[in-house]
Write a protein that binds this DNA or RNA. Structure first.
Length: 325
DNA sequence: GCAATTTGACCAGC
DNA sequence: GCTGGTCAAATTGC
């Protein structure tokens, strides 16, 4: 870890020097200077981002979680395993109600989509909650394989008050389950990408990962790019209160579902500047256009993988700029 | 009958 | 005390 940090610090410093060098030694036109500013900022920001993640006080937080977990286990024996051996009756079950470990906001991925479709995983709804200052309830999902494979992935889906045709999806935790029946990837309609904006957010505890929209081309193979043929209506069971003009009634579940299109049109994936609980809707107006790509599995990619891509892309951009000078 | 969803209650964190 | 996340009994659908 220390080596990584050292290398990143050096890379950051080098990027800074390159920027200074170009700025001072070369007579740039205003537009070139602007481009240089943009790319150098992005490059430096990438280093800052990675460093901030690596330097996050994870160990301390993990320790705290561990302590709380132990306390929880003492007071509330593991519910999934002890359901049958703690006295067994409804009375005991009721007494244990609410005895759980509430998750602290860990790393989360925030998406803003036009439609709700399959993201390649099976989810089971476990709650719905009205949220203050919002017109629509927030739906809570956990991985279907939570019990059989102890998969800890969670997902929240909420229709955006200001723009009811869109939904904010928050993914928390990573899938540890193996589900051969599900194809990975989030689906996006190529046809809409031209005018779409992407924001991607990986949040850590109290940690701002980035403050600025990123180029979606950074994620040429991201799960947010896919073709439209893989779409499956995953969310039919979700009771969402869409505007009358854009909704229909699902005969299967009785739920109201969005009818805009069968695709999952991700319009923004954000780097919010505030924690999940505080941030408003993700601003998509600043992001550049999106290039379409094909669907692939990115289940294996974690936050650092994306950041590597991000960093590499910024270097490539800077490289291209230098070539043109 | 089983699995998934609904929904009121409970509790942690702020 | 309020808000949001989770639990679990009840309900619904296949």
């Amino acid at each position: 870890m220390e080596n990584i940090t050292t290398f990143l610090e050096k890379g950051k410093e080098s990027a800074h020097q390159i920027r200074s060098f170009i700025n001072e030694r070369l007579g740039l036109k205003a537009e070139d200077r602007e481009a240089l500013d943009h790319h150098s900022w992005a490059t430096l920001n990438s280093f800052e981002t990675v460093l901030s993640i690596l330097n996050a006080p994870d160990i301390d937080q993990d320790d705290q979680v561990l302590i709380k977990k132990r306390k929880f286990e003492l007071e509330c024996p593991d519910q999934s395993k002890s359901e049958d051996n703690i006295g067994g009756g409804n009375v005991v079950s009721k007494e244990r109600r609410g005895c759980y470990k509430r998750r602290k906001t860990g790393q989360s991925l925030i998406l803003e989509v036009n439609n709700l479709t399959d993201d390649g995983h099976a989810w089971r709804k476990y709650g719905q909650k009205g949220i203050l200052n919002t017109n629509y309830p927030r739906n809570y999902y956990r991985c279907t394989h939570k019990n059989d494979q102890n998969c800890q992935a969670l997902k929240q889906v909420q229709q955006i008050s200001e723009n009811p045709t869109k939904y904010k999806i928050i993914y928390q935790g990573q899938h540890t389950c193996k589900n051969p029946h599900k194809t990975p990837s989030i689906i996006i309609d190529d046809s809409l990408e031209e005018n779409s904006s992407f924001f991607l957010s990986f949040e850590t505890n109290n940690h701002l990962v980035a403050k600025r929209p990123i180029n979606p081309a950074l994620f040429p193979k991201s799960p947010f790019h896919a073709n439209t043929t893989m779409v499956k209506q995953e969310y039919a069971p979700i009771k969402v209160e869409s505007p009358p003009s854009a909704t229909t009634h699902d005969p299967h579940s009785g739920a109201t579902i969005n009818q805009n299109s069968p695709t999952s049109d991700i319009t923004s994936i954000g780097f919010p500047s505030t924690p999940v609980s505080e941030q408003g809707d993700v601003n998509s107006s600043l992001a550049p256009e999106v290039n379409a790509s094909t669907a692939e599995s990115y289940d294996d990619m974690d936050e650092n993988d994306w950041i590597k891509l991000l960093t590499m892309d910024q270097f490539a951009s800077l490289d291209g700029l230098l070539d043109n000078l």
